[in-house]
């Protein structure tokens, strides 16, 4: 009798799980206007992003016209957690389904066809290409291999030189100077890389000893130096004179950041008109305008704000994240 009850329960529960799974794909669909044309990374004047509208196309790379950003979006079949675009090349950081939690970094051409594939560990977090697409960098965050306290995490930043195919799967080994002093430590974590047009200079965040710094690195000599403290996820402006970054303005709280722009010549920082906490590596739409994703209320949208601290934030693309310009930067 007991065995019968157990069998029936098992069958009922298995049925419920299968029923739920089969119907999971079709629920909570957010309908957005769709343009049936294909996504092309070389079409000028379009914003490329990750589609966040709940439904079968969530996570797909999509694009909208910058003239009508809330209008119909073109959808691709490429799914990414994070997507970057430079000069008609795309970098897709996606979680790879399989028996193990892992990710892949895909370099794709203008039609989103795969050119290069790298297996990566961890959860996709940031992706960037240099302005001409020669250098690629991505960050994943990894739980489970942190050596210290429970609840801590570590990040891994990787760089790929597409000219010779060389991969640095973890840039922790770079020669680092903190405030001029040679620094080596076991607790180094890098994230949020952004490249300059010379395919040599890059900026990133490093954390060590409980502090975070903005670093400037040299890809050729494999050295890096800190520029200032408390500046995360830098994004270099198209003219190369400023970086937008998130600054921690509160010690506690889960979203403690305020987005700022730093003038690299004067090292003067300007807070932006967006006062909500941004946890993103923002994109420059031109030398005066920024775009960024902002999650909240179970949805994520792309917003835009002026880079000089004036004006007020404006919703750009609903149900979208990971913004990037389709035309080459600075165009």
């Amino acid at each position: 009798m007991k065995i019968l009850i157990a069998l029936v329960t098992t069958l009922v529960l298995a049925g419920a799980a299968v029923f739920y799974t089969v119907h999971a794909a079709g629920r909570d669909v957010v309908v957005v206007p769709v343009d049936p044309a294909a996504v092309d990374l070389t079409t000028p004047g379009r914003l490329v992003f990750r589609n966040e509208a709940a439904g079968p196309d969530q996570g797909a790379v999509a694009s909208v016209s910058l003239d009508d950003p809330a209008g119909p979006r073109r959808l691709s079949s490429l799914r990414c957690g994070r997507f970057a675009v430079s000069a008609g090349t795309g970098l897709c950081l996606a979680d790879a389904p399989g028996p193990l939690p892992s990710a892949v970094a895909l370099v794709v051409d203008a039609r989103l066809a795969e050119i290069n594939r790298t297996a990566v560990a961890g959860v996709p977090n940031r992706a960037r290409l240099s302005p001409d697409g020669a250098l690629a960098a991505w960050t994943t965050f990894v739980t489970g291999d942190s050596y210290s306290t429970p609840g801590s995490f570590s990040t891994r930043a990787a760089m790929l030189d597409r000219r010779d195919g060389q991969l640095a799967s973890n840039i922790e080994g770079i020669v680092l100077r903190v405030a001029g002093e040679r620094h080596s430590a076991e607790d180094l974590n890098y994230w949020g890389v952004t490249f300059a047009a010379d395919n040599r200079t890059f900026y990133a965040t490093v954390s060590t000893g409980g502090r975070t710094y903005l670093v400037r690195g040299d890809f050729d000599t494999w050295q890096a130096e800190t520029l200032r403290e408390n500046a995360e996820c830098p994004s270099l402006s198209p003219d190369g004179t400023r970086v937008a970054f998130k600054k921690r303005v509160q010690q506690d709280g889960a979203r403690p950041w305020r987005e700022h722009v730093l003038d690299l010549a004067t090292m003067k920082e300007t807070p932006l008109a967006e006062t909500r906490s941004i946890d993103d590596q923002v994109a420059w739409l031109d030398d005066r305008t920024l775009a960024y994703a902002l999650p909240g209320d179970g949805r994520t949208d792309i917003w835009t704000v002026r880079a000089d601290g004036s004006g007020s934030p404006r919703l750009l693309v609903p149900h979208a994240s990971s913004p990037a310009l389709s035309a080459s930067a600075g165009a």
Partner: peptide, 24 residues
Amino acid sequence: AVLPLYLVLGLGFSPLQFGLLDGL
């Protein structure tokens, strides 16, 4: 197995937030 993925990719949490939740 899926919690880090869900929180960071599914809900857009920052790794920092994940750490706070996990430590709790």
